[in-house]
Computed example of a mutant assay.
Amino acid sequence: MKSQRKNSQISINLDTFHTLELIKNQVFSKFNSLMNTSQIRLTKGGYFMGEPMPYPFIFSCDFDDENLPNLGENLELLLDDKVVGFINVSEIFNSKDEYEKNIFNTNERKNGLGRYCVAGEFEIFSDEVRAVKSDINRIKIEQNAKKITAVMLTADPINRAHERLIRMAIDKADLVIIFLLQTSGDNHINFELRKMAVEHFIQNYLPHNRVVIMPFRANIFSSHKNPTLECIAAYNLGANKLVIGQNHSGIGMFFDQNQPHTIFDRYINDLKMEIIVLPELVYCNQCKTIVSTKTCPHGSHHHIKYKTDTIKSLLFNGIMPPTILVRSDISAIILSRLYPNRFKDIQGLCDELFSNSGLLEKRDECDFYKELMRLYQTSSLT
């Protein structure tokens, strides 16, 4: 999209773009503009206009002094040289050290401050979050959903323990919102492939009219590092219960007089949300099923843990994980994308290895991995 006006422009990165999209769609607060100096001062106590506000909405950037935008002017936002939104500039002020902690530069993200901060209402040209919010509201009306549970997942990749957690949430809820979180670093399955795998699971194994995926692409939620914002986001999207695992990397659980406490405690009464911290789920080779470490009587030496790094190590080396860890059809989807065109003649390979209905069946790499796992599971000759 090219600009028709000669407005001031500034480049932003993809993470800033997705964070702006969440602000605009009131995921963090009903307030959805970039804050001016007087508004920033009102957030000092961690609240703003009666709402929790752990990070003020301070937009910091760099300008040459002669290129400062004018008040009332639209400052266009560029992403990869395309206009993806604009800020209607209401105030420009010098950045200060006290502004360093902000929604774009949290404790988990150290981007530093530019020379100036820009305040004002803004638009961002993306409909993804808005569309999912609309879908949530539609289902709430159609299903008369009152009990709405949020489940925060990186699903990197979605495994059997994730599946059990989601099913447990559905059992107690009218609607479950799966917040699919961004991951950071290189040793991760990319967001689109993780989303595809979760969608496949929902469409094939769940009542999909009771489950919605909310994609959180901004790094602010990367790998569960900001649980307070997860809780606030779940509340603002209509959830009244948040389900997380005991191994959630950011909850900071501690005990006081034998009572468990977490980082959520500061805002939990304001949001009136129920927080469910589930114990670790493992596969027990004595129970022959997925169990909680709190309920299984067998020792940890009988437990197979759902360690995502271990599962990814298999996938990244082209090996299908055991089906007690990841569904074979989900592994097939991931491997076929991680290793496209891995085999020279996939059709011929399938025809020689696998039985068929007697008719010519066209097969792709995803079919190959699924059929191969079925052969591995044949037990009469083992």
Rank of each mutant, 00 (worst) to 15 (best):
R5L: 15
S8M: 09
L14G: 03
D15C: 03
H18R: 03
T19Q: 04
L22K: 10
N25F: 01
F28P: 03
K30C: 10
S33V: 06
I40R: 07
I40K: 12
I40V: 14
K44M: 09
G45K: 02
G50K: 05
G50Q: 01
P54A: 02
F57V: 02
I58W: 03
F59I: 11
C61Y: 12
D64G: 10
D64K: 14
P69A: 14
N70H: 05
E73N: 12
E73A: 14
L75P: 12
V84M: 08
S90F: 07
I92S: 07
I92M: 06
N94V: 09
N94E: 10
N94A: 12
S95I: 13
Y99D: 06
K101C: 09
I103Q: 05
I103A: 00
T106M: 12
E108A: 15
R109W: 05
K110L: 14
G114Q: 12
R115V: 09
R115D: 08
G120V: 09
F122T: 00
E123K: 02
E123T: 05
I124D: 03
I124Y: 00
D127S: 03
V129Y: 01
K133Y: 00
I141H: 12
A145V: 14
K146N: 12
P157Y: 12
I158T: 01
N159H: 04
A161L: 06
E163D: 08
E163C: 11
R164W: 09
R164D: 10
I166A: 04
R167E: 13
K172P: 04
K172Y: 10
I177T: 01
L181D: 10
L181R: 01
N204C: 09
H208D: 15
M214D: 00
P215Q: 11
K225N: 15
A234Q: 02
D256M: 10
P260S: 09
T262W: 03
I263C: 11
F264G: 06
D265A: 07
K272C: 09
I275S: 10
I276W: 01
V277Y: 08
L278A: 04
C287L: 08
S292N: 13
S292K: 15
S300M: 07
K305Y: 09
S313R: 06
L315A: 08
F316K: 06
N317S: 14
N317H: 14
T323F: 13
V326N: 00
I334M: 05
I334T: 02
N341Q: 08
R342D: 11
R342W: 12
F343L: 07
F343D: 05
I346R: 01
I346P: 02
Q347D: 00
G348T: 01
E361V: 06
K362F: 01
C366P: 07
F368H: 02
K370Y: 13
T378N: 10
L381A: 00
